[in-house]
Design a protein around this nucleic acid. Sequence first.
DNA 1: GGCAGCTCTTTTGTATACAAAATAATATCA
DNA 2: TGATATTATTTTGTATACAAAAGAGCTGCC
Lengths: 240, 240
Amino acid sequence: MNGTRQFHLLAGRGSDPSARSDEAIYQALWEAIVEHRLVPGARLPEDALASAFGVSRTTIRRVLQRLALEQLVTLKSHRGARIASPGPGEARDVFNARVILEDALLGEVMKRINGSDLEDLEQIAREEQSAERERAIRLSARFHSRLMAIAGNESLSDTLSQLLSRSSLIIAIYGRGQTGCTCEHPELVALLRAGDSDAARHWMRHHLHDIEAGLDFDADGDALPDFENLFGHHRGRSVS
Amino acid sequence: MNGTRQFHLLAGRGSDPSARSDEAIYQALWEAIVEHRLVPGARLPEDALASAFGVSRTTIRRVLQRLALEQLVTLKSHRGARIASPGPGEARDVFNARVILEDALLGEVMKRINGSDLEDLEQIAREEQSAERERAIRLSARFHSRLMAIAGNESLSDTLSQLLSRSSLIIAIYGRGQTGCTCEHPELVALLRAGDSDAARHWMRHHLHDIEAGLDFDADGDALPDFENLFGHHRGRSVS
DNA sequence: GGCAGCTCTTTTGTATACAAAATAATATCA
DNA sequence: TGATATTATTTTGTATACAAAAGAGCTGCC
């Protein structure tokens, strides 16, 4: 058992293990990260990934470097790659960035939004409500992404996509069970439909602050598991 | 002559050619790009760069990939790397992104700016005025970078830095001689000092629109040189 | 003279080999 | 027994080897 086993299911179901392009490997790892199947801090040994995906370390390293530049993975010299584990400071930075950026983009969105956009958004928001946690997180991100794409700026849409991925990591670390948001997106759609720009932007700022407020930054990411809580009831007993 | 010669002077003056870290090579190429010593569309053969920097292609490829992810370089399969040459659409996207982002960030800046910030900015703006073209472009970027850093958000500062680098490329292609801006930055410093947030933001939007308006998108980047203009006066003569 | 097809050269893409660093395991000694 | 030093193993970082693709040059043909 060389550690490959644990990455097998990321490598795609059944299809030819070789001939997978960079993009496919990137996609597989990205999904595993934002879906919390790879938790923050998890090691990503190059050999294991290489054999799991049926490529050489050369290819794996390239993908890992890309993920590192997007801050979903941290690379330490001679110490390998791990799923990134942003601290409270970085987490706050990400949400602060989202407040600033999404507020600004929403201003543009309100100038351009049309019926087809509203339909798509309503659709996503609906699905979101009847989805379990992991799926809801992804749909929530898709909602924000689809909404801000209406602004029509690719550069900033890309930036937001990265912030959304990092948000998913942050929720994995500091989230307290809920999806991060209480899924109030349909409320926003109503405001968008009414064309009330100020109300929509005000709502969005509060929405993001709510998500951040729902995080527990005391539950330190790199901290040890809470042994007291996990094993406290063993106190005074023999370990069996 | 294997093509190495042309990259020699990027590799640093005199010091040990080997032992240059990724970061140093990245920096050298980045500077050459934003200073227009490598013009948009220029080829970047891996072998030439490798021997110029005294490293293997492995290292060069990693750096090129990073530059590609920042959209300063384009990588085409089996066709190698070139300095990126953003078309009019991408150019407009970049400046549109800057209008949205810098306007939003400036709102935060006005809440936090202090005397030390103002001094730094005034200093940069002053130097800018007595600098020749290439240096003025870099100082202008530094001015915007330093100003927006006051907002205190790392994620968005990084985003802006990338937009500024790409702006430099765009000016290299579509600029009409001027530095891109008419160096009105001292005007803005006055507004900042007065603490007039609305005026400052309004000024910034106009400033960025002015820069964009100063570009000539008809002068297509990938287009052939304007032979009519260059050699039209030869018409009817022998080529000697 | 100009164009099509072919060959040869150059350049990229991927895998592998090897050295150095870090981690794990073992042995030694107090 | 516990801590420390030493050795062995694993894992990363860089360079190189080799195959495939693109490009350049050449010959022959119309």
